[in-house]
């Protein structure tokens, strides 16, 4: 347990462990991969079952599936415009994967795969590559004019172009670090306050039990806050993907 030896061990929750014993170890299948598969299965089940009945008055599952669909559809259409509809499946998949990763991580005994920079950076790199390919496919070499805003004085080109390129390259980093840091910070805070509950509660008899209520209450509030953050970060990831797609489609 985390409270042993009076040390707060908040980071061991992010360690990878082989899943399914020796089988998982031999193919390097960790609990992180297992949660990704679980998220994939849950998303597929939600969308398939949710839309199977096609009721005019939706049930709970159908309402959930439809509101998720319409939420992302609104974002994509609002940001990219009507020609952005073809990118909707991409943004929707990314959003659902991140959302389920964040939400699943809040369940007891679950693992948050979005708390690993390797996962979030892979997602952000995917977005970055797709956006760049879309821009190149639509605009060809004209895409490179993106790095030099029209109307700027030509003499400033050696200054502006490197800065614009660095700014463009920083997108996947800011995209991935934001999600990763939010998830890690939230789970570390939860763990630290949970450790306080055990430490204070086991310390001084009745007084300790009364004192342990305070970090416990804090943790209850934090779980609510983390649910908000889990949704918000998935939303931010989706909307930034849409904004980048807008830049790729319209250049500026």
């Amino acid at each position: 347990m985390a409270a042993e030896g009076k040390a707060i061990d908040a980071l061991s929750q992010f360690e990878l462990a082989p899943f399914l014993g020796a089988v998982g170890e031999s193919v390097r299948f960790s609990q992180s991969n297992a949660h990704m598969l679980l998220a994939f299965g849950l998303i597929t089940a939600l969308m398939l079952w949710g839309t199977a009945r096609r009721a005019i008055i939706p049930g709970r599952l159908q309402a959930l599936a439809e509101s998720g669909y319409e939420f992302i559809y609104g974002i994509v259409e609002g940001q990219v415009g009507s020609e952005g509809k073809r990118y909707f499946p991409f943004v929707f998949s990314i959003f659902m994967f991140v959302l389920f990763g964040n939400m699943l991580g809040l369940l007891p005994f679950a693992f948050t795969y979005t708390s690993h920079i390797a996962v979030t950076f892979a997602l952000a790199a995917l977005v970055f590559i797709v956006v760049t390919v879309v821009a190149l496919a639509i605009h060809g070499t004209h895409f490179f004019s993106y790095f030099f805003p029209e109307g700027a004085p030509k003499a400033l080109a050696p200054l502006i172009i490197p800065i614009e390129i660095i700014s463009y390259l920083s997108r996947p980093i800011s995209l991935s670090v934001r999600l990763f840091a939010n998830m890690v910070a939230g789970h570390v805070m939860l763990k630290v306050f949970a450790t306080f509950v055990v430490m204070i509660g086991s310390a001084a008899g009745v007084l300790g039990l009364i004192g342990a209520v305070l970090p416990m209450a804090m943790n209850v509030a934090l779980v609510g806050f983390e649910i908000l953050v889990a949704f918000l970060q998935a939303y931010v990831f989706a909307i930034l993907t849409s904004i980048y797609l807008h830049d790729a489609v319209h250049l500026h």
Partner: peptide, 11 residues
């Protein structure tokens, strides 16, 4: 903060 630092890291 993230925007500032990530551009700095890339540079």
């Amino acid at each position: 903060g993230v925007e500032l630092v990530s551009a700095l890291v890339v540079g």
